[in-house]
Write a protein that binds this DNA or RNA. Sequence first.
DNA 1: GCTTTTCCTTGACAGTCGTCAAGTTTTTCT
DNA 2: AGAAAAACTTGACGACTGTCAAGGAAAAGC
Lengths: 212, 212
Amino acid sequence: MTDVASRKQDRITRRQVDKFDARRTELAVATLHTLAELGYARTSLREIAQNSEFSHGVLHYYFADKRDLITEAVRQYEVVCVTRYDEVVATSTTADQLRDEFVAMFFDTLGQDATLHRLWYDLRNQSLFDESFRADVLDIDGHREDMVWRVVSRYAELVGGTVAVSPTMIYVTLDGIFQRALLNHLAGNADNVAQLRVELPAAIGLMVTKAE
Amino acid sequence: MTDVASRKQDRITRRQVDKFDARRTELAVATLHTLAELGYARTSLREIAQNSEFSHGVLHYYFADKRDLITEAVRQYEVVCVTRYDEVVATSTTADQLRDEFVAMFFDTLGQDATLHRLWYDLRNQSLFDESFRADVLDIDGHREDMVWRVVSRYAELVGGTVAVSPTMIYVTLDGIFQRALLNHLAGNADNVAQLRVELPAAIGLMVTKAE
DNA sequence: GCTTTTCCTTGACAGTCGTCAAGTTTTTCT
DNA sequence: AGAAAAACTTGACGACTGTCAAGGAAAAGC
């Protein structure tokens, strides 16, 4: 094959691959929405296909099996999820501003993306039963930990102090608060959510030690 | 009906009811074990029956439907779960002893009852999708919160200080640590579990303020 | 001991599931 | 425009699901 011909072949292959990947992503997004709506236990391939513009058979054209499809959907989730607070970190110039904007976004996404968040917790729990999810889940969990660490360590910096606990402890605490708030939110218990919002700043405060 | 006859009838009815309830409980326990093993998404009635000494048809003799059965299983879980640390609270005479024994039991049950705990988190998450579980879940969650509050408030008492954060915050923090430890435990990542064990005492310490 | 009630098994039902092969439509290439 | 390849639909398969009715086995009542 000549150079020109091989480069041409490359372009074609690339374009095919791109198209293939684009459709995969499209179907993974449809999967994500279906999972968020129904939960892992009740999500079927036919239901997913109905949330897309294709028929159920096409899923096996783009994915090896159901697990492959759901794994791809989880990866899509990560793309959306894991940089949520970065802009807040980048633009805040005072500790109070960072804290307040973090709390605001925390509860904003709680209400806005509630179904997506409950899906995340559903899949994380599935990984307790199904080994094949664990690697992806632990990976995403790590990125979430990094995400809140960026927030809290920057907060400590702006306060002029140091972080008093480990990144892991920070993450599990904030994630625990989020889970609780999500449950209360979906249960329609707005008062409890509001109470958690009031208490969140103090919880963050406990994690950093001000300089003397 | 004479008094004697009516009392006799009562006894008979009572005995029948007791027997009925006993079998219900027996089947609920079998359900609990099946759920713990397979998770909610993959637990079928036939699988449950195979974990008992009866056939699958009997489940509809004692339970209205699958939801009824699983709800009863969840209630069984609560009976086991929610008084776990009470003896530690009752017998500890110093703050250090209480803290150490709590931590020990915390990680003991983590390893011992791992499948049961993952089931709890599975069901709590199901309640984010299925409204009919929510009441029971919120009830159990409340009892778990009370449970850790009894530990931490007693700890503060023995230290001679006061609790610095709300019961809810205490619970979500400890529960978050437990969840993370459970995931790492089931993933075979013993190092991370050990690390959490090291950090847990300090996390408890942060929650109480010593008297001046 | 015989009848009645309770308890449990069996087998079938209507439906859903993941998977895949066969065939049709659409796009791409020459 | 015609041929080849890719993209997609359709329908079927075996397996599995919750539910329930019919009937047998065991226990209780007399």
